[in-house]
Amino acid sequence: MAVDQLPDNEPISAASKDRGPLLPFILNPFGRFGIRLNNTLGAMAIFLARAFIQIFHWKQIPEIVNQVYFIGAKSASIVALVGFFTGMVLGLQLYYVMNKFGAVGFLGTAVSLSLIRELGPVLAAIMITARAGSAMTAEIGIQRISEQIDALTTMRIDPLGYLISPRIAAALISFPILTAFFDLIGILGGYLSGVILMGASAGSYLYRIDASVEWIDVKGGFIKSIVFAVLVITICCFQGYFTHMRRDSYGSKSVSLSTTSAVVLSCVMILVSDYVVTSFLL
């Protein structure tokens, strides 16, 4: 008898008897979640590996170029806009803080290192997720529910090679370039607010950037952007590709939920992996 069907006068212990021992009852959901998580991560790893190995074929080149245009070129304007204002806010805030310690001369160092080491890769990845990642999930999800992916299988075209591989290649190309673009525009934004608006020295701003930014900082930013590229693309494509396997919804509703999940999960994973990668790099 289910708990909600128990008569009012029946002792509560009878219900717990039906449930069985208390400890497994509490632990079971965690166990189930753990198994599901394990299976999903395994499936994602296989998904990524199978798609990755199919990148290296000349027939992929036109589609990779298309995807670089979609993920990279079309995201450039939004990345530039966000980069510019991030740099401007950094310029203002750091000018205010450093002015208190009489260290305005180090504004260039603070702005450039913050952007190159941390904010550039993270914010660029989040912006690409929002613009291109969500679109990718929705597109692949619709292709799944309208049987276009099944059609590829029946035509002897591996859907992973055709749909996912070019996107992975394009992300690996676009993420570092957009990150560099974000850093550059951000430094310009910081120059505008810190130097032109607030009156810090232009010479010391540029000199400090030149003196303090080392190759290892730039390399760290690029490593992060590549890690984010792999994570974002895998999550977004995986969510779209398996949208029909969702248990919580069907059809177009499942596409919208997959898109939401892809964006949220990607953003969370960008921040989590940022911490992990940073701790390895330092």
Partner: peptide
Amino acid sequence: GRISYMFQNNALFDSMTVFENVALPLKRT
């Protein structure tokens, strides 16, 4: 490779023209 399937709902690629849809299996395989 010997089989072809015509789907009930056609399963045409909506981002491709009719020509691109028809040429796709030849182009890729």
